[in-house]
């Protein structure tokens, strides 16, 4: 029942703190959630990917993740710097389904808050919950090391309840993966992201 509260809570919060205020709340929640989950260290990518498949990492508490081992991301020297992962089911999907069947249509405030985030921060949210979820992944990835190197999470694409898709072209370019490939993964997933060694990219330069 706690999850159902999101919609009425966000509705209330929008009337008191505005959509921007709710975005700020969600960002802080994502950050504190990830920080409170603690740090993790893995000896290498195989160990990390097994942990992802087994649901043992802080990044897989939200649900089963397909590890796209055929999509290893390499740097200019051919060294593996990360992989692409696909979350099978959005954690909000059961809540949305129950809300619609038991209460009614999802309130407009859901889209209003997502739009506020998309217009001001990053165009990557298909619902208001994406804000905290993506922030959670971003901070949680920074708390994980693989072969003693901190990770960075790049949001690539996600799919909303009505089928709308959000792609993040700058992140796709950074890992040099074609949009069509990500779309094919998204057919059987709700969210696609990459985990790479912090600051690295598939290109030549190191990102600050």
């Amino acid at each position: 029942m706690m999850d159902i509260a999101i919609y009425s809570l966000v509705d209330d919060m929008v009337s008191k703190a505005g959509t921007e205020g709710v975005v700020e709340y969600w960002l802080r929640v994502g950050e504190s959630y990830a920080e409170r989950m603690g740090k993790e260290a893995y000896v290498g990518w195989p160990a990390f990917n097994v942990a992802m498949k087994d649901g043992r990492t802080s990044l897989t508490v939200e649900g089963d993740v397909n590890v796209q081992t055929d999509l290893a991301i390499t740097d200019k020297d051919g060294d593996v710097i990360g992989y692409v992962y696909a979350l099978k089911v959005c954690p909000m999907a059961p809540t949305m389904g129950r809300y619609i069947s038991r209460i009614g249509p999802i309130p407009d405030s859901d889209t209003d808050v997502a739009d506020s985030y998309n217009n001001r921060i990053k165009d990557s949210a298909v619902s208001n919950y994406c804000i905290t979820h993506q922030k959670f992944r971003e901070v949680a990835a920074n708390n994980i090391t693989v072969a003693k190197q901190a990770l960075e999470c790049l949001q690539l694409a996600n799919k909303g309840m009505t089928g709308e898709v959000k792609m993040v072209p700058e992140n796709l370019a950074r890992i040099n993966v074609d949009e069509r490939h990500i779309k094919s993964i998204l057919r059987n997933a709700s969210c696609v992201f990459a985990l790479i060694v912090k600051g690295k990219s598939a290109g030549e330069e190191i990102i600050d």
Binding site: M2, I4, A5, Y25, S32, G63, T95, R98, T132
Partner: peptide
């Protein structure tokens, strides 16, 4: 039917209330 939820979402709502406090 289906009164379950994803606990990831539930926990984040508790944290939302903590942030409000």
């Amino acid at each position: 039917e289906n009164i379950g939820s994803n606990p990831f979402v539930d926990v984040s709502v508790y944290l939302f209330f903590e942030d409000i406090s």
